[in-house]
Design a protein around this nucleic acid. Sequence first.
RNA 1: GGUGGGUUGGCCGAGAGGCGAGGCAACGGACUGCAAAUCCGUGUACACGGGUUCAAAUCCCGUACCCACCUCCA
Length: 459
Amino acid sequence: MTFRLYDTATREVRDFVPLEEGKAGLYVCGLTVQSEPHVGHVRSAVNFDVLQRWLRVKGFDVTFIRNVTDIDDKILSKAEAQGRPWYNLAYDMKRELDRAYAALNVAPPTYEPLATGHIPEMVELIEQLIVRGHAYAAEDGSGDVYFDVRSWPSYGELTRQGIDDMEAAGDADPRGKRDPRDFALWKGWKKATEPETASWPSPWGRGRPGWHIECSAMAGKYLGPAFDIHGGGVDLRFPHHENEQAQSRAAGHPFASYWMHNAWITTAGEKMSKSLGNSLTIPAVLEKYRGIELRYYVVAAHYRSHVEFSFEALDEAAVGFRRIESFLDRAGVTEAGELPAAFVAAMDDDLGTPAAVAVLYDTVREGNKAADPAPYAGQVLAMLDVLGLHPADPAWGGSGGDDQQLTDAVDALVAGLLDQRAAARAAKDFATADAIRDQIKSAGIEVEDTPDGPKWSLA
RNA sequence: GGUGGGUUGGCCGAGAGGCGAGGCAACGGACUGCAAAUCCGUGUACACGGGUUCAAAUCCCGUACCCACCUCCA
């Protein structure tokens, strides 16, 4: 079966046909490392991680590039406000981001390039644009270089907008621009307000790259002039992706064949931002929920649907996921089996994770009914693996030596109490039996009677 | 002003012309000494008003409300 995906550029679900058979080149806009990652940031990472995994399942040799923007206006202004070097802030936040990705089992991309590591590539690309007549150095002596929007007739094609209907970009002094919609490829160093460490030499004097040029340069370097899929959050469609595409095509590169955009996670109807406080940063959420539960919550919604985040919904998702885990515990299977056809069909249909998750639950129910749950458990494990939700994945931290020791110790203590309870039950002294169970429960441990005898678990 | 998206049962969340995705909660039943877990059953949902059709939550027209992007943003 062919994988189909919704292409934002054409606004329709299309068969995925790679440029080169058996290979898939994927570029996703990562984060600007200027503050702690929150749930919304991670949704993008998880969504594209699922895409990457699915392409691999489909047999593609995937090259996945996800960049990190480590220099921009905000990083500079925040670092200055915090009284530390901008590169220190960027590096710290990058490490924080890596921790968040690891906590959610987001597999690393093939390569994760930093903007500041690709200044020469960007300069080269800007020079090409100037030669081709699509960019110009500002005539006001600022050292800025702009993309000439009027020189590129198809500007606006990605988001179906006419140039004259757009509002002007406000990221630079408009006096240096030929058209207010022209955007910066290169920003001249402002000696009075910016540190010299945030500037690099260029044919136009010291300066730093504009935001959009980095992705064009890095996608070109690692994936070539033409590649398959470009992804990012919906907010990036304009101006970022529109500009990327214009730049790259104006430089003679075909660029991306498909565009994918993930929707928002909102809180109280508004998109997440620092103004809502820090309650939804990944470290904060992980104090109350396991990474696997958060990931399940994200994966259970379709990537193009808005998700209204709430702790109630996250609770609910966690409860549902534990049902899957408890089935797996009971089945005691560790080998992944085959993927059910319905699951494959759901995933092939533009990564239909909601329908895929429904298949997951259907399989769990069948397994709970079956005399031998093993084959069903094998299927469940295979599906979870594709979604990055395999409970035994070492990414979740597993049970360390200390944990195992602790479990053994508790097991020994509880076993003694359960023996007493068994004796009481045998004597039909249910009052005593229940009292023992209540005592155990007050310590935070639940007891269940199963055909194989009583079992305990943390409540 | 331009562009795009949304409004589904108590809640979360799919679907996109015709059998009520799935989950959570609730209720009834089975099982249990009682529970738990599990299984079975129970819902007459698709913003509003028109229309097309044998058939519409799904298509068309209109209305209302919400959101995003057009400035940095996943």
